[in-house]
C-alpha cells in the first residue's frame, strides 16, 4: 500500500488474476466446520461433493490421491457460513464455535 502512482498499473487495472487469495477471510469465522470421514460419501466412494459445489468460498477441498478420497477444509478462507453442514446429506459436517 506504499506504492507511488507510477508504481501501480494504469487505471486500477489488476493484472494478477485471482490474487484475492492473498486476502484471508478465515478471520471472519465465528463457527468452524468439523468433518467426520466415517459417513462422508466423498471419502467413502468419491461421490456427492455437495459441500464443495455449494461452498461460496471454495473452502472445501476434495482430494483424490493414490486411489483414496481425502477431505479437508481450507480454514484460511472459510467464513463459517455453515452451508456445507446444512446441505450435507449424511450429516457428516457440524459447526462448532471458534
Amino acid at each position: 500500500m506504499s506504492e507511488k502512482y507510477n508504481e501501480i498499473p494504469m487505471a486500477g487495472n489488476i493484472i494478477e488474476p485471482g490474487n484475492a487469495t492473498k486476502y484471508k477471510t478465515g478471520g471472519w469465522r465465528a463457527q468452524r466446520p468439523i468433518h467426520t470421514d466415517e459417513t462422508c460419501l466423498w471419502v467413502k466412494n468419491g461421490t456427492c461433493g455437495l459441500c464443495w459445489i455449494y461452498c461460496p468460498d471454495n473452502s472445501v477441498k476434495l482430494i483424490e490421491k493414490d486411489g483414496k478420497y481425502i477431505y479437508e477444509f481450507d480454514l484460511e478462507y472459510c467464513k463459517g457460513c455453515g452451508i456445507c453442514a446444512n446441505q450435507c446429506p449424511t450429516d457428516s459436517i457440524r459447526m462448532e464455535n471458534e
Binding site: 459445489i53 471454495n58 457460513c81 452451508i83
Partner: peptide, 25 residues
C-alpha cells in the same frame, strides 16, 4: 462432480462477499 472438480475455478477464495451469500456459488 468429477468433471466439476477438473473445471478451472473462475472466482477464487479471498473475495469479501458476506458469509453465506449465494452469489459466489
Amino acid at each position: 462432480l468429477k468433471d466439476m472438480l477438473k473445471k478451472p475455478e473462475i472466482l477464487t477464495s479471498g473475495h469479501r462477499m458476506c458469509a453465506g451469500c449465494a452469489a459466489p456459488t
